[in-house]
Simulated scan of single mutants.
Amino acid sequence: MDEQDKPGAQRAVIAQLLPELRAAARMLARSRAEADDLVQETVLRMLRGLPGFVAPPELAHDPQAALRPWGLTVLRNTFREGWRRARRERDHLEANPPEEEAPRQTDQESAHEVRDLARAVSRLPPSMREALMLVCARGLSHEAAAQICGVPVGTMKARVSRARRALANALAPVNA
């Protein structure tokens, strides 16, 4: 591919990655709206960063294989930035509470297992949720997920194991 066609081809590959980015964002975010915002911000950052993107030599022949890990990394970093921002805002609100707090609205309780699973996953710490999403939901190897997250393989395996255990405990039937 010549240099003039390269940006257009890379944009087309990013468009092909949208379903995967949406699925990954859905695993990280607590709602569809948050996931959509996360994907939108990720795509904007990827488009802004395209001129400086250099594919690894071993993946230079396959643009999708080259852009996929980068896109997931951009998504993860964007999520983490938002999570840190929300934590700072939450800490600020705790330090300066409003005069009177309104009761929190909760979703209608449901017996649907999928909704229960989604809630349990959303309660996991971000690092465990991310590990679970990459290895279990996306089907990446522990090694590939560890590379995307920039952690040792053993750390990735431990995060996945702890996330699975936490989900099993959260979804276990309550015995009175």
Rank of each mutant, 00 (worst) to 15 (best):
K6E: 11
P7C: 04
P7S: 03
A9L: 15
Q10F: 10
Q10Y: 14
R11A: 05
A12W: 14
A12N: 12
A12H: 08
Q16W: 14
L17M: 03
L17N: 04
L18W: 11
P19H: 10
P19I: 12
P19W: 08
P19Q: 07
A23N: 08
A24W: 08
A24P: 06
R26V: 07
L28Q: 09
S31P: 06
R32N: 06
E34D: 12
E34T: 11
E34N: 08
A35I: 11
D36W: 04
D37K: 02
L38C: 13
V39I: 11
V39G: 04
V39C: 11
V43G: 01
V43I: 11
L44D: 05
L44I: 13
R45K: 09
R45N: 06
M46H: 03
M46G: 01
L47R: 07
R48H: 06
R48V: 08
R48I: 05
R48A: 02
G49F: 04
L50S: 05
L50R: 05
G52N: 01
V54R: 07
P56C: 04
P56G: 06
P57M: 03
E58G: 06
A60T: 08
A60L: 05
H61Q: 14
P63I: 02
P63M: 02
P63Q: 00
P63C: 00
P63H: 01
A65E: 07
A66S: 06
L67H: 00
L67C: 00
L67Q: 00
R68C: 09
R68L: 13
P69F: 05
W70D: 01
W70V: 01
W70G: 00
G71Y: 02
G71E: 09
L72R: 12
L75G: 08
L75A: 07
N77A: 06
N77L: 10
T78I: 03
F79H: 12
R80V: 15
R80Y: 09
R80P: 07
E81Q: 04
E81Y: 01
E81C: 01
G82S: 15
G82F: 15
G82I: 15
W83D: 13
W83G: 06
A86I: 06
A86V: 09
A86G: 09
R87K: 13
R88P: 05
R88M: 05
R88W: 05
R90S: 01
R90W: 01
R90P: 02
D91N: 13
L93Q: 11
E94L: 15
E94Q: 13
E94I: 15
E94G: 09
N96V: 04
E99L: 14
E100L: 10
A102Q: 14
R104T: 10
Q105E: 15
T106E: 06
T106C: 03
T106N: 02
